[in-house]
Amino acid sequence: MDGVIGFLQDLGPNLQLVLDRMPLILDGLQVTLLTTVLGALLALVIAFVFGLAQLSKVMIVRGVARVFVEFFRGTSLVVQLFWLAFVLPQLPYPLGFRLEPLLVGVLALGLNYGAYAAEVVRGSIGSVPKGQFEAISALSLSPARGMFRVVIPQAWALMIPSLSNLWIQLLKGSAIVSTVLLYDIFFQVEQLRDRTGTWFAYSFALLAYYLIAWLIVILMNGLEIRAKHQIGRGPALRTAWRSLFQAPGTTPSGGRTARVVRDRSVAASGTPMGGGLA
């Protein structure tokens, strides 16, 4: 309890201290944003490559993709991070090399969450109605054209909520990177602790992550509204801007049908934070 009272008493001086340390905190923020954005981009590329490869007609391609996805889902993010940071440099020539801490963070986050996201991509493409595929051949579109112009735009609208959740997971996972000497915002705020006390420093850190997570939510909600609008399943962003601020996991504006479809793709993927099933 004295923690809470002390927290309120020292709020003013502590905020002043934050201002004094702002350059360092901003450095940390930059590192966190950089790992989170680059990690997510890598994850997205991996997700599409290995998600689509799992749907390939060639068995070898499918098999390799499955092994890759199961391996990176199964071996735990922190282990992968430590492996890249500690084991990789110890491997003998020509295998061993030391990566920049930033690269270690981005690679571990991208590989791990990319594997989860690959399942989302696979699940969403699997839940595009069969008739759409039939329509592609009926219109004699080439398979590639059909994939990129018909299937993926629809699957994209389905996968955004799950990808949004995964991106927040990735952001949260990035808080571990200071263990491999990448000085992110959590590390920089932790340095405040001996001056400000535990309550202030950690509340500040939690709040910072919460705000970044909301930026991701708003961005992804915007993408979802746009994607739905483009395939004619929802209002334009201009009229539906209120749903930008919809918390993840709450019933989306799309109503019942959207929920069911979303849950089906999530249930198939078994991602963390994927929401429930109907």
Binding site: K172, G173, E190, A213
Partner: peptide, 18 residues
């Protein structure tokens, strides 16, 4: 929602110190 959208790592260290 706040607990869900903030990192486990930060929560762990925080709770441990307190």
């Amino acid at each position: 929602e706040f607990i869900r959208m903030t990192p486990l790592v930060v929560q762990l260290v925080f709770a441990n110190l307190v």
